[in-house]
C-alpha cells in the first residue's frame, strides 16, 4: 500500500506537472514535494506515464517512411490519383436522386448482411478498400464466410 499525502490531492499534483499552478501555489508545492515522499512518487509516476505515451507514439510513427509518405500525399494533393476510384467517386457524387437511392441501398445491404446466418459474431476479416465522398461511403469488406460485402452508408 502506498503512502498518501494528507496535504495535497491529485488535482494539485497534476496542475504542478502541467505547470498550471499559480506562482504562490507553485512555491509552496515545490517546497513540499522536496520533503514529501508520497507526492514525489505521484509526480514521478505522472511524468513516467507522459514519457511512456510520448515514446510509444514516437516509436510507432517513426516507422512510417517519410519519403513514401511525402510522395503519396503529394500525388494525392496535386491530383495524381488512381483513375478507377476517381470514377467511382464521380458516380457517388451528391446528386439528390442518388441520395434516396443510397439510403435504400444501405438498408438493403445492411439487412442482407446481418441476416445471413453465421455472419453475426464472426466479423469482417479486412477492409479491402473504401471510398468516401461528401455524402456517402463504400466499404468493401472481406469476411471469412463471404468473399466481399459492400456496405454503403450516408451522412445526412
Amino acid at each position: 500500500m502506498e503512502k498518501k499525502c494528507s496535504q495535497y490531492n491529485l488535482e494539485t499534483i497534476s496542475a504542478f506537472v502541467d505547470k498550471e499552478l499559480g506562482p504562490k501555489q507553485l512555491d509552496k508545492f515545490a517546497c513540499h514535494v522536496e520533503t514529501c515522499e508520497a507526492c514525489r512518487l505521484v509526480v514521478d509516476q505522472l511524468q513516467g506515464i507522459k514519457e511512456a505515451f510520448k515514446s510509444a507514439a514516437e516509436d510507432e510513427m517513426k516507422s512510417i517512411d517519410s519519403q513514401v509518405f511525402l510522395s503519396s500525399v503529394t500525388a494525392k494533393s496535386f491530383n495524381r490519383k488512381p483513375a478507377i476510384f476517381e470514377k467511382l467517386k464521380e458516380y457517388l457524387s451528391p446528386k439528390p436522386i442518388l441520395k434516396i437511392a443510397t439510403i435504400a441501398v444501405i438498408l438493403g445491404f445492411s439487412l442482407m448482411y446481418f441476416r445471413q446466418p453465421g455472419i453475426n459474431g464472426i466479423g469482417p476479416s479486412a477492409i479491402v478498400n473504401s471510398v468516401d465522398t461528401n455524402m456517402s461511403s463504400v466499404m468493401i469488406i472481406e469476411t471469412i464466410e463471404t468473399k466481399h460485402t459492400i456496405i454503403w452508408f450516408t451522412e445526412t
Partner: peptide, 28 residues
C-alpha cells in the same frame, strides 16, 4: 512549399492522430 509543410509537421500530426486512434495505418 507543400513538401516543406509536410516535412515540418508530419511527425507532430502523426503523433496526435496515433494518440487518438492508437492505430498506425489509420494515423498515416
Amino acid at each position: 512549399a507543400f513538401a516543406i509543410l509536410v516535412k515540418k509537421y508530419r511527425m507532430q500530426l502523426l503523433k496526435i492522430a496515433y494518440g487518438i486512434t492508437l492505430d498506425r495505418e489509420e494515423s498515416c
